[in-house]
Design a protein around this nucleic acid. Structure first.
Length: 690
DNA sequence: CAGTGAGCGAGCTTCCGCTTGACTT
């Protein structure tokens, strides 16, 4: 009897089928040995010797494995073929005290791949294991040294780490960009032009040989300029200058990785990353898709055959196109891309599972289908009056759908009339439109993951935990249930780290680390030397900053308030949820109180409650701000903040129209006499409409 | 497309990357 050890329990049954009765397949369930949770667990004075322990979670399984291997002839270590997988094998070897073992790897769970693997066993690659150890030790040193620094200098319970702090910094910097952004006005001009064959729209591109670009304030910066140009164009003569036509091909996107699956599932299905991964896990356990935590784009021969047969049968031969995908960057290629394991109809799936499965299937099929072909036309139009102008119109028609048949994408079809060169055109209408440049958008879960992946920060198995982390620590919050915004404490932590430990917010740090780890994996460097190089500078700045930075300077502000318990001074301190006022003589006096509301939250003029005549105050709720009676909870009267729309309700003619937010966060307009009047509208009713 | 309001914080916290089942009442 031989035993094969793998990482995921869901693989064991399939493998047993392939390997036959001589083999029993068991799972480690991830890592089986790690640094202790309660202390650093690294002897920094003794060549960074790690002190590994078996985490409580793994104890039971290890006990079971020990029992199982007792009468095994050979133990095959079949963990994933990457850095972490190699380390898991190494730890299994030690924990189980294996003598008779062989290391085998396979990139896909097919009979041939697995049989091949057992024929070619090798030894454990200690260089690869060392690269993992270096990664682990570095992350531990950074996390377990910087977090306590934050406890001392800011407030208890905070955390910092190579990955989470980079993520937080990205969110914080974007917020600063948005705050610093100054919106600028610009105008665009479009002409509706008549030709013999029909009319089309062209956009103004040049004036007297000077380019007018969207958002380029030098072009048409204001209404005056736009109106003057519009007037000039209205009396201008228009001529077709040139017509360019060409075929444009559009290629399908590669099949899903964890990251792109999360992005598309959010875009197309509105699934948060966590939900996507939960559903994917279930599909994987049912054997319907390949492994869902992967950064590989690889498709096996079996996968391509599957797609070929399906595409040719359902859409025709010319729709199939064989392609090979390789991930750019640093994919560890332990698995395939995410794809369906078969293409037969699936039954008994939950509604959400169907949706995600369908998306995965379409994306996979599309990746092996032919390009879509568009016929695109560009018409340039000259105009002349007081000034000379150049306008341009783009048309595009899909000639052949190709992959778009199964994976619809957004594109605009626009057919232009068959004009001829030098043809005179007539302007039916000249339209001047006002625009404003927009600030960059806040990150969503999906776009933040994309950004992290771009810099090689984090792994497929950690994308969701990273998001949870910065959320649980109250470093970020969601705006409109979707956009990430740093909280006050998030900003303080991000700025502190960026100012004093710039390596951690340097997005290239991880990439450099990976280069070093590669050298370790190739046997060109000792892992301890990589760590030592980093640690020397790190611990030096840490010690320097410990002395230099005083919590008082960072966090405490004086106030004019007196403590109403002991009469002492009140100061502003920092907690997990932001600033608050506390008595200076803590811990003798434990008095605290919240800070005054922001000025914008106190009404400009006094509002009195029309039920009990008490004052009303601005309150916040999950649905936004509103006026609440200060007599609460005795008087529960409330008023809407945005009563100043000055539009009478078209239904009851008594109440005022107010803007509200639905549970889903969408704006709508309603009567403020609700529930007496139940008028609603998604658009703003006009005031003249009486 | 329909409701609304806190008040805590200040001695044992914390990392990243693998992987899922759950000691008992």
């Amino acid at each position: 009897m031989h035993i094969v050890l793998v990482e995921s329990p869901t693989k064991t049954k399939t493998l047993e089928k392939f390997l036959g009765k001589e083999y029993k397949v068991l799972a480690s369930g991830g890592h089986v040995r790690d640094l202790p949770k309660s202390k650093l667990g690294i002897d920094v004075d003794s060549d960074f010797e790690p002190q590994y322990v078996i985490p409580p979670r793994a104890r039971k399984n290890i006990k079971n494995l020990k029992e199982e291997i007792k009468n095994a002839d050979t133990v095959y270590l079949g963990t994933d073929p990457d850095r972490e997988g190699e380390a898991i094998s190494y730890h299994l070897l030690h924990v189980l005290g294996l003598k008779n073992y062989k290391r085998i790897t396979f990139n896909e769970i097919t009979k041939s791949a697995v049989e091949e693997a057992t024929k070619r066993p090798r030894d454990i690659d200690m260089n690869l294991v060392d690269a993992q150890q270096a990664r682990r030790v570095l992350d531990r040193l950074v996390g377990y040294k910087l977090s306590p620094f934050l406890w001392k200098k800011v407030t208890r319970g905070l955390s910092a780490g190579r990955v989470q702090s980079a993520a937080l910094w990205i969110v914080t910097e974007r917020e600063k960009e948005i705050e610093a952004f100054k919106s600028e006005e610009y105008w665009s001009i479009n002409a509706l032009l008549d030709s013999k064959e029909g009319s089309f729209q062209a956009e103004l591109k040049e004036r007297n040989g000077e380019k007018i670009e969207k958002g380029d304030v030098k072009g048409l910066p204001n209404k005056e300029d736009a109106q003057r140009t519009k007037k000039d164009l209205e009396k201008a003569g228009f001529t077709v200058k040139s017509i360019k036509q060409k075929e444009k091909k559009r290629s399908p996107l590669p099949p899903f990785t964890t990251s792109t699956m999360q992005q598309e599932a959010f875009k197309r299905l509105r699934f948060p990353s966590k939900v996507t991964m939960y559903i994917a896990q279930s599909l994987y356990e049912k054997g319907l898709i390949t492994y869902h935590r992967t950064d590989s784009l690889h498709l096996s021969k079996e996968a391509k055959d599957l797609a070929k047969e399906y595409i040719e049968r359902n859409y025709g031969k010319k729709y199939y196109k064989e392609r090979s995908f390789t991930a750019k960057g640093r994919s560890q290629e332990a698995h395939e891309a995410i794809r369906p394991t078969s293409l037969s109809e699936k039954q008994g799936l939950k509604r959400e599972e169907v949706k995600l499965y369908d998306l995965i299937k379409r994306r996979f099929l599309a990746s092996l289908m032919s390009e879509a072909v568009f016929y695109s036309t560009n018409i340039e139009v000259e105009a002349r009056n007081k000034n000379e102008y150049l306008l341009s119109a783009n048309g595009s028609i899909m000639q052949y759908d190709g992959f778009i048949k199964v994976y619809p994408i957004k594109f605009q079809e626009n057919e232009l009339p068959q004009v001829k060169e030098k043809e005179k055109l007539e302007a039916k209408e000249i339209m001047a439109n006002q625009h404003f440049t927009k600030p960059p958008a806040r990150f969503t879960e999906a776009t933040l993951i994309k950004e992290l992946e771009k810099h090689g920060i984090g792994r497929p198995s950690t994308y969701v935990p990273i998001l949870s982390r910065i959320d649980e620590k109250n470093y970020t919050e969601k705006v409109d249930k979707k956009y990430l915004k740093p909280t006050e404490i998030g900003r303080i932590v991000s700025d502190l780290l960026a100012n004093h430990f710039p390596f951690i917010t340097d997005l290239k740090f991880t990439a450099h680390m990976e280069e070093d780890l590669d050298k370790v994996a190739e046997g060109k460097r000792k892992w301890q030397n990589v760590i030592r190089d980093f640690y020397k500078d790190f611990i030096e700045t840490l010690q320097k900053k410990e002395k230099e930075l005083k919590k008082e300077d960072l966090m405490q502000e004086e106030t004019n308030e007196k403590c109403d318990k002991c009469g002492g001074e009140m100061i502003i301190r920092m907690g997990k949820y932001g600033k608050f006022m506390a008595c200076k003589s803590f811990p003798e006096c434990k008095n605290t109180k919240p800070l005054e509301e922001d000025e914008e939250d106190t009404p400009e003029e006094e509002i009195t409650c029309d039920k009990c005549n008490a004052k009303m105050q601005i309150k916040k709720s999950k649905f936004g701000k509103f006026y609440g009676c200060t007599n609460y909870p005795q008087c529960k009267n409330i008023k809407s903040l945005e009563g100043e729309l000055d539009i009478k309700c078209p239904d009851c003619k008594e109440g005022n129209v107010v803007k509200k937010k639905s549970r889903k966060g969408k704006d709508f307009y309603a009567c403020d006499r609700y529930p007496d009047c139940t008028f609603t509208s998604s658009k703003k009713p006009s005031s003249e409409d009486e």
